[in-house]
C-alpha cells in the first residue's frame, strides 16, 4: 500500500492523534514556561531556601529521564492519593521536565543582561520587582529566545512519550494502527512526516516570529 493510499484511508485517526499532540504541546508549553520563569528566578534568589528548592527541582528533573518522571506521576502519585487523569498527567510531566531545562535558559538570559542595566534602574529608584519586570526580563527574553526555539522542538518530541501512558496522541494512534495492520513503514513514516511538519512549519516559524517581534520591540533591527 502506498503512503498516499495509506493516508487516504487512515487520515481521521492520524488527524485526531495530531490534534491531541498539538493540545499536549500547547498545554505543556504554557506550564513549562511558567515553571521556567519561577524556577529560573528562584535559582537567582539570595534566599538560600528558594535557591535550594529551585536547584533541587532542576537537578531532579534534568538528572532523570522524562519516561521515569511520566511513570512516577502517573503510576506512583495515585498511591499517595493524588490521582491524575492520563491526559493531564501527560502534559504535566512533559511541562515539568521542560520547565527544568527552561529555568536554566531563564537564569542564563537574566545573567546576560549587562550590570549597568541593574545599576541604571536602581539609580532611578525602581523597586526590585519593577527592575526585574520592566528592565531586566524584557532584555533577558530577547537574549534567550533562540535557545527556546530548540527547547520547543524538544518539547514537541517529548509529547510523543505520553503515548506510553495511553494518551491517544499521534504516536499512540500510530502504534495502534501498526498493531492491527502491520503497515509499519507507512504508518510510522506518515507519523514521522507529520511530526516534522509540526516542528518545521509550525513550531519553528512561531519561535522565529517571536524572536523578530521581540527584537523589534527592543529597537534592534
Amino acid at each position: 500500500m502506498s503512503l498516499i493510499d495509506f493516508v487516504a484511508q487512515f487520515w481521521p485517526r492520524l488527524l485526531s492523534g495530531a490534534g491531541v499532540t498539538v493540545a499536549q504541546f500547547l498545554l505543556a508549553a504554557v506550564l513549562g514556561v511558567a515553571i521556567s520563569l519561577f524556577m529560573g528566578l528562584m535559582k537567582l534568589s539570595t534566599n538560600p531556601l528558594l535557591k535550594g528548592a529551585a536547584v533541587t527541582y532542576i537537578e531532579i528533573f534534568r538528572g532523570t529521564s522524562l519516561v521515569v518522571q511520566l511513570y512516577w506521576i502517573f503510576f506512583v502519585l495515585p498511591l499517595f492519593g493524588i490521582t491524575i487523569e492520563k491526559f493531564t498527567a501527560g502534559y504535566i510531566a512533559v511541562g515539568m521536565n521542560i520547565g527544568a531545562y527552561g529555568a536554566e535558559l531563564v537564569r542564563g538570559g537574566i545573567l546576560s543582561v549587562p550590570k549597568g542595566q541593574w545599576e541604571a534602574s536602581l539609580a532611578i529608584n525602581m523597586s526590585p520587582a519593577q527592575r526585574m519586570r520592566r528592565i531586566i526580563l524584557p532584555q533577558a527574553l530577547v537574549n534567550m529566545l533562540p535557545p527556546w526555539g530548540n527547547l520547543m522542538i524538544e518539547l514537541l518530541k517529548g509529547t510523543a512519550l505520553v503515548s506510553l501512558i495511553s494518551v491517544a496522541d499521534l504516536m499512540f494512534q500510530a502504534r495502534q494502527i501498526n498493531a492491527t495492520t502491520f503497515l509499519s513503514a507507512q504508518v510510522f513514516g506518515a507519523a514521522l512526516i507529520i511530526y516534522y511538519i509540526l516542528a518545521r512549519f509550525f513550531v519553528t516559524p512561531l519561535m522565529r516570529w517571536l524572536e523578530r517581534t521581540m527584537s523589534r520591540k527592543m529597537g534592534k533591527v
Binding site: I153, L156, K157, G158, T159, A160, L161, S163, M171, A174, R175, N178, F182, L183, S184, A185, F188, G189, A191, L192, Y195, Y196, A199, R200
Partner: peptide, 21 residues
Amino acid sequence: EFIRSTPLILQIFFVFYVGPQ
C-alpha cells in the same frame, strides 16, 4: 534536520518494525 525534529521513540519503532516488513 529531519531526524532532529522528530521523536526518538517513533524512530525506534520505525527501525524495529519496518525491517521485518
